[in-house]
Design a protein around this nucleic acid. Structure first.
Lengths: 232, 232
DNA sequence: CGAACAATTGATCCTCATCAAACCTTGTGG
DNA sequence: CCACAAGGTTTGATGAGGATCAATTGTTCG
C-alpha cells in the first residue's frame, strides 16, 4: 500500500499543513499492519508513536485493573489516534487500541511530531481542535451515563456511530457492523441488556438485526428515543 | 484586588510565558466578581471569554435538557476554565460555571487569546497539556461510572478532590467543604445514597461528617475502598 | 424564634446485572 | 456436502443495588 501526501490532507489535524510538511511526515513514518483482533498499543505502554488509521477499523478502550473495559471510541480511516501520549515526552497511552478488522496505520514518532508542532502553530491548533471535540464528547457521554437510562444510551451510541461512519446500503437504510458486545461496551451496559433492547426495537420495526449487524429502518424514531424528554 | 503579572505564572498554561506576555494578558483582561451561587457563564452561551480563577472556588457542571446535572470538576485558585470555547471562533461553552463561594476571576477575551497562541507555540503547547489531562480524567471517570459501584465512586471522588484542594486542619486530618448534593453530582448518584455511604463510613471511623463538611480520619482506608479489587 | 436549607432515615419499587442454558450463524475440515 | 466447533446471540429466572418518595431531624442565620 502506498500513501500519498495528498491523502494525509484528509486527516483533520493535517488539513492546514503544507505539502512539504506532509511529505516530511510520510518519510519519517512507518506503516504498521495489524490483523483482526490485534493491538496497535496497550494502555500503559510508553507512547512512542501516534497513529493515523489508513485502512480498516479500530477501537479505543480503557480497562480497569479488574479487567472490565469500556469503549471510548471507534476509529475509522484517516482518523488520528494515540495522540494524547504525543504531547509530553514521558507519556504513556491512556487506552488500548485494538483492530476490529485487518487494519493498517501510519505510525509517526511522537518525538518527531512534537518537534514539528513547535514550529508550526497550525498543527498544534488543529490538534487542539480535535482534543476539545473529545473532551466535549466525553463530558456528554459522562453525563448520559450518570443520568440516563439504558435504552436511551444505546440509541445515542448507535446514532453517534452512524454519524461517524454509517453507510447507507442498497435500500437506503443505514447499516452498521457491530457486535452486541461492542454496543454494550459503548453504552455502558451488558450484552444481555443490549440484546433485549434491540429485540424490542426490532419488534417495533425500528431496526433489523443480525449477527454482528444492525440496520436502522427508522432513524428518526431512534433520534426520538435518544432526545425525547422523559415521558414519565 | 490587584493581580500582578507574576501571579499569573501560577497558572499552568502560563508557566512558560514571558513577563511581557503576562503583562499584556493582564492589560487586556478584566476582573469579574461573582457572589456565592452566581454564574460565570452558562452552558450554551457563546464563549467570548476564558477565565482564570483568582479567588474563591467554583464548579463546572453539565446539565441535560431535562435539567439533571453532573459535576465535571471543581475549580480552585489559579486554574483556568472556560478554555474549551476559546479554541474556535464560533464556540459555545459546553458547561456551566457556578461560584461555590464569593469568587473573582480574570476574564480574557477568547479572540485575543487565540491571537496570542498563534505566535507563541508554548502557550498552545501548555494548553494542550492541560487538555490531555482533562481527557484522561474524563475517560477514567467514564470507565468508573460504567464499571464500578457507588461506594467506590464516592471514595474516588473524595480522593480526587483532596488531591486537588484538600487542606489539613489542626488535627492533621483532611477536611473538605462540600454538600451531599455536590458529592452526589460528582459521583453520579443521589444525595440519599451519598448520605448513606458517608453514614456507614462514619460508623466505621473512616470519616467525620457535618453540614457541608467531610473530614477524612483514615485516608488510607478510603484509598483501599477506591482501589481494592472486588473481593466478591 | 422561625424560616430556609442541609442531611438523615425508612419503606418501596424498578431497572439492570447476573447466571445458566439453549439457540443461531459462520467457517472449517473430513 | 455434511458435521462439528467456535463464537455470537437470545431468552428466562432471579436478585441486588440504588433510585425514588415522604417524613423527620438537624443546622445556620436573620
Amino acid at each position: 500500500m502506498t500513501i500519498l501526501p495528498a491523502d494525509l490532507r484528509k486527516v483533520s489535524v493535517f488539513q492546514h499543513a503544507t505539502d512539504d510538511d506532509l511529505k516530511l511526515l510520510l518519510e519519517r513514518s512507518i506503516l504498521r499492519s495489524i490483523e483482526e483482533g490485534g493491538f496497535f498499543f496497550f494502555q500503559g505502554d510508553p507512547a512512542k508513536y501516534l497513529y493515523v488509521l489508513v485502512a480498516g477499523r479500530a477501537k479505543l478502550m480503557q480497562s480497569s485493573t479488574a479487567g472490565q473495559q469500556v469503549n471510548l471510541r471507534t476509529i475509522s480511516e484517516w482518523q488520528m489516534f494515540g495522540a494524547l501520549g504525543a504531547v509530553r515526552a514521558d507519556a504513556i497511552y491512556p487506552a488500548t487500541a485494538q483492530a476490529l478488522e485487518a487494519s493498517t496505520a501510519l505510525a509517526i514518532e511522537s518525538a518527531f511530531w512534537r518537534e514539528m508542532m513547535q514550529t508550526r502553530p497550525h498543527l498544534s491548533f488543529d490538534l487542539m481542535q480535535l482534543m476539545t471535540g473529545y473532551i466535549q464528547e466525553m463530558q456528554e457521554r459522562y453525563r448520559e451515563l450518570a443520568t440516563e437510562k439504558v435504552e436511551r444510551r444505546i440509541a445515542r451510541s448507535i446514532l453517534r456511530l452512524t454519524a461517524q461512519l454509517g453507510l447507507k446500503n442498497a435500500d437506503g437504510n443505514i447499516e452498521l457492523a457491530l457486535t452486541r458486545q461492542d454496543l454494550a461496551e459503548m453504552s455502558g451496559t451488558t450484552i444481555f441488556t443490549a440484546s433485549r433492547v434491540l429485540a424490542e426495537w426490532e419488534r417495533n420495526g425500528l431496526v433489523e438485526t443480525g449477527r454482528e449487524r444492525v440496520v436502522l429502518c427508522k432513524p428518526h424514531s431512534l433520534v426520538q428515543i435518544a432526545e425525547e424528554l422523559d415521558e414519565s
